[in-house]
Design a protein around this nucleic acid. Structure first.
Lengths: 356, 356
DNA sequence: AGCAGTGGGACATTTTCTGTCCCGCTAGGT
DNA sequence: ACCTAGCGGGACAGAAAATGTCCCACTGCT
């Protein structure tokens, strides 16, 4: 019986407090020097609670308070790292990582404890470890291709560390999509390039262009160049979306959407819709990286979390095109269960409800 | 950094609660099925506190409540055993045991975490492990000799387990001493024999008889027999007293007491007063086991705890007559410090105050 | 039958926690 | 040089939890 288990048995009240402070510490780590109210708003806790906890953490020397906000002390970082370890052990994410890697033939899997769907702070963790992973693999002169999406946007936003300063070129792998500027591949490329201290290129083209115009657009030199660049990328960082959500975001009409669903589309990545087996069900006549271009990219990194995305992740990983997957525990566990089920009976009944 | 240390950093409030519940659990273990008020009185905590904690522990399935009181559940025993381990690790008592064993050439040392002086529950723990140790070494037909004292009385009182049922003979090693019937060697022998399921003999003689009568008393067949029996004991279980306390308990007059102190007497065991080097300073002209009789006893077991007894324990262990020592952390640590000091400078200045 | 000791209920009181202000300060932008 | 958004910290009333102290019905034992 584990030390932590024993504690929880003897002092069950501990759990709440420990988890709350762990969340606060993680938020402080990610959000750098941050104010009390900002944290409050970010974590959805009450101001007073956050304050009391911060007072205690400060008294314990884990966080430092300055005029620009609180931030982790060196000791706090050590303690937090140990808490991370403990959480990983408690949830056995290492086992999950190994299992997922085995099933989908991945080079590397990183699973963050928790579930982005029920706890927003988990998503911050996930995108931050994605950032750290990027830091660890990018070298001078590398080209990094990125797609759009809320997750990718957050990766760019929360990219950790100050001066990376490797001469990396960031290029969008896809054209523009939807109205929200914050989650465009272009915007993300810019933000990431800033954080990385590298340069970027923009893809001045919409993603969903009518087929007859595609060829014409591809003749544009500035567009052609950027696409050519993205095909030579060393790393592709892409998100994964559920088929429904992406269809909605692309503004597909109801008929097309129904058709997608009917053909079993559950996941989307870089313009392609896949069914649970990883087969292409539909692809946008799109401007940008094509699926077969991935063969020349040495690291295709998927980032997505939240148990609601499990089907989508299952679909995309099943393509066998990804090398690395960064996700969270909630998604990973459900992906595992789905994989088990589809293996034996080819389908799962009613797995769309949200368990706890 | 240890899991427990991390916890204490992040949730410092934990310590109080954890220690309190640990104490309660230990008390429940020792005092068997015990009522709430009884516990309250025993632990010096308020009734409501004990009650709230018990409610939680019961909800956690660690204790069971019946009409005769609360007692540990099987799971509770497991958890408590792990807590014991944790406490031992936290206080590094294993290191203390090894060090003490090395210094005084002991076969076996058992140190219980805590300090009997500041926490009465520690003494209960100590006497209980003493009981367990006894259980583990006594065999059919063995003779067990015991001395008097509050600690020994408690060993008898808290002797763990139901039916031991080994045919052990318990004999008092010393005659009567003082007025308090509960701490007489005779009484203790009876209680222990009951708990062990063995038989006992009584020594109907006072300990502090005038020298001229000693010989006469020793001619009494029933006394002579019992003493002869104690000399053939396999195990001698004895307490250790401070010189002052024992002098007072024996009702020695002020002159004698001052003389004892002047000659450096700090510790007492089975009627002998020792200085810090373990040399005999004074011995009562007593009826019972003599020091040289110990040579024929294969296990001489000393039981004493509380930092206030450190000098006394140091003295008695320094005689080299003991094989086993069962004590608590508070005493053990101070004994170590005293030993260090006396080794280098031959004395320690003002070590009688009680540090925390 | 009496009794000592048990757990559980109840309640007023105290202490702690919590939500919500305001305030003075500092840094960064204008 | 000023302005302002955001910072930590102080303050305080109301809510909630912990605490001390009863009483009560029950049970096992003498």
């Amino acid at each position: 019986m584990d030390t932590l288990t024993v504690m929880q048995k003897v002092v069950p009240e501990l759990k709440d407090v420990l988890e709350r402070r762990y969340t606060i510490l993680r938020a402080v780590r990610t959000l750098g020097p941050v104010g009390r109210r900002n944290l409050t708003h970010e974590l959805g806790l009450s101001e007073r609670t956050v304050r009391s906890d911060l007072d205690i953490l400060r008294a314990q020397g884990l966080v430092l308070a300055s005029s620009e906000g609180v931030l982790l002390s060196p000791e706090g970082e050590v303690v937090l790292a140990r808490l991370d370890e403990m959480a990983r052990k408690l949830h056995d994410v290492a086992g999950l990582e190994a299992a997922l890697g085995e099933i989908f033939g991945l080079q590397r899997v990183i699973v963050v404890p928790g579930d982005s769907d029920s706890d927003p702070s988990v998503k911050r963790d996930m995108v931050q470890v994605a950032g750290e992973y990027l830091r660890s693999i990018l070298r001078d002169g590398d080209i990094l291709a990125v797609t759009g999406g809320t997750t990718l946007a957050q990766v760019a936003e929360c990219f950790p560390g100050e001066s990376f300063n490797r001469r990396v070129t960031v290029v969008p792998a896809r054209g523009g999509l939807g109205e929200d500027i914050r989650i465009q591949a272009n915007t993300i490329a810019v933000r990431l390039a800033e954080k990385l201290g590298g340069s970027y290129r923009l893809l001045h083209a919409p993603e969903d262009v009518l087929p007859c115009y595609v060829e014409q657009i591809l003749r544009e030199p500035r567009i052609r160049d950027v696409i050519a660049l993205s095909k030579r990328a060393k790393v592709l960082l892409h998100g994964i979306g559920t088929a429904e959500e992406m269809a909605r975001r692309r503004g597909l009409d109801d008929d097309t959407t129904m058709g997608l669903i009917a053909r079993g589309a559950v996941g989307e990545a870089f313009g392609y819709y896949f069914n649970a087996k990883g087969e292409i069900v539909y692809s946008t006549s799109s401007v940008g990286l094509r699926l077969h271009d991935l063969e020349n990219i040495s690291k295709v990194v998927a980032v997505a979390g939240g148990r609601s995305k499990a089907w989508a992740i299952l679909a995309v990983l099943s393509t066998g095109r990804c090398h690395v997957c960064i996700t969270d525990e909630g998604a990973a566990r459900r992906v595992m269960r789905l994989k088990e089920s589809t293996k034996t009976e080819g389908g799962v009944t009613d797995d769309h409800q949200d368990w706890d």
